[in-house]
């Protein structure tokens, strides 16, 4: 497993890690910064993580995925710090012998990451900023 927090996401590193002669499929999900949210211009996102717990929780999710699907390799990499629109901020990648497992596992991994991994983003607009999801 390749699980880590980084300043800058490197797509090639993830792909290189996931490649394997046993795998007939490599599935990569790349989450990027969108320049709009609820009708407002987003100029920047700041990501903050509780590093030790974020890694631990990503490991739990990864183990769950290995139990559910026959995966060859798995990568979860999340960026921290200030990020501008268009920039990649998270990579979820898996390789498997056949494509169904890698598609399904990839979806599971990003959905679970968003629910439980202690990473927070603050959205900066033209005129103010908010911590995403903080308030009902």
């Amino acid at each position: 497993m390749l699980i880590k927090l980084v300043e800058h996401i490197d797509l090639n590193e993830a792909y290189a890690y996931l490649q394997s002669p046993e795998a007939g499929a490599v599935n990569l999900f790349v989450g990027t910064v969108r320049n709009h949210s609820k009708g407002k211009n987003v100029v920047r996102l700041d990501f903050e993580a509780y590093d030790a717990m974020a890694i631990r929780q990503m490991e739990h999710i990864a183990h769950d995925a290995f139990k559910q699907w026959p995966l060859v390799k798995l990568a979860m990499i999340h960026a921290v710090g200030a990020k501008e629109p268009g920039v990649p901020v998270v990579i979820i990648g898996v390789s498997s012998a056949h494509r169904d497992a890698s598609f399904e596992a990839c979806r599971f991994l990003i959905d679970e990451l968003k629910k439980t991994v202690p990473i927070w983003k603050k959205e900066f607009y033209d005129d103010n900023s908010v911590w995403v999801n903080a308030h009902p």
């Binding site: 631990r56 991994v117 202690p118 999801n133 903080a134």
Partner: peptide, 29 residues
């Protein structure tokens, strides 16, 4: 509340040597 990097339940006991953290709604990804 997280205790030693795991989510804790309301009834869980706390001791000073644990690493305790407050976890607001997460928004990674």
């Amino acid at each position: 509340i997280a205790v030693d990097s795991e989510y804790a339940q309301d009834e869980d006991a706390l001791t000073p040597e644990q690493e305790i953290a407050l976890i607001p709604p997460v928004s990674g990804g």
